[in-house]
Amino acid sequence: MTRSGLNVLGGDLMPCSYDPLTGFFRDGCCSASDEDAGSHVVCAKLTQEFLDFSRARGNDLVTPRPAQRFAGLKAGDRWCLCAMRWLEAFQAGVAPQVVLESTHKKALQLVTLAQLREFAWAPH
């Protein structure tokens, strides 16, 4: 299933993850939307180093929050990250790998394709 939109390579945007279910719309895709002020458009394969970095920046992605139907994330999970947070992690040397086919082209407003390619991960 693809969601409308293009990825950073110019092809159809492919799903990032259904387990855990990710995306601003919780549909598995890192779609771009004017409703999404955080621009959750980078599909990343999370590392513990990144999760620790994110928590230190005030965004705890590890702790479960059942009231929001959020089980918490762990290293190895794929998740739609805010493009700005990925860029911050990149600048700090702790950027997680990205799935280019599942990263929305809107990410290119903040990061370059070369930066993303440097951290490309192929799920196959």
Rank of each mutant, 00 (worst) to 15 (best):
R55A: 15
W79F: 15
G93H: 08
L108W: 10
G58C: 03
Q68D: 13
Q48I: 01
N7D: 15
F119P: 00
Q109A: 15
L13K: 06
V8G: 08
G76P: 07
A95F: 03
G28E: 04
L13T: 07
G76Y: 05
G72P: 00
E101Q: 14
T112M: 08
C16D: 10
R26M: 08
P123M: 07
C16Q: 09
P96M: 08
R117G: 07
A95E: 03
L100F: 08
Q109N: 14
C80A: 05
T47W: 01
V41I: 12
P123T: 13
Q91T: 07
A92H: 11
R85S: 09
E101H: 12
A67S: 12
H124F: 12
L46G: 06
D34F: 10
V42M: 03
H124S: 15
T103M: 09
F70G: 00
P20Q: 08
A95Y: 03
L6N: 13
C30N: 03
D52H: 05
D52M: 02
V42F: 06
A67Y: 04
F24T: 04
C43L: 07
N7Y: 10
P15D: 10
R3K: 14
C16S: 11
F24A: 05
N7F: 10
L108F: 11
A122W: 09
R69N: 13
C30T: 04
S102G: 07
L73T: 01
T2Y: 11
S102R: 02
D52G: 02
P20E: 08
A83W: 00
A122D: 15
A32N: 12
Q109C: 03
G72Y: 00
F70D: 02
V111N: 05
N59E: 11
D12F: 10
A75D: 10
H40R: 15
E101T: 14
D60L: 06
L110E: 10
H124G: 15
A92T: 03
L100P: 04
L73P: 00
L108G: 10
S54K: 01
A56T: 03
L110H: 10
Q97Y: 02
A120Q: 13
F50H: 06
F53W: 08
T2K: 10
E88Y: 08
A92C: 07
L108S: 08
M84D: 12
A44I: 04
D52R: 08
F25R: 13
H104M: 06
G5C: 09
Q91G: 02
S17A: 15
M84W: 07
P64A: 06
P123F: 03
H104L: 05
E118D: 14
R78W: 05
Q109G: 12
T2H: 11
S54I: 01
Q109P: 01
N7V: 09
K45R: 15
L6Q: 14
M14K: 15
Q68T: 04
L51I: 06
F70N: 01
R55F: 04
V99K: 00
T112R: 09
L51T: 06
D27T: 13
V41H: 03
S4A: 14
L100Q: 06
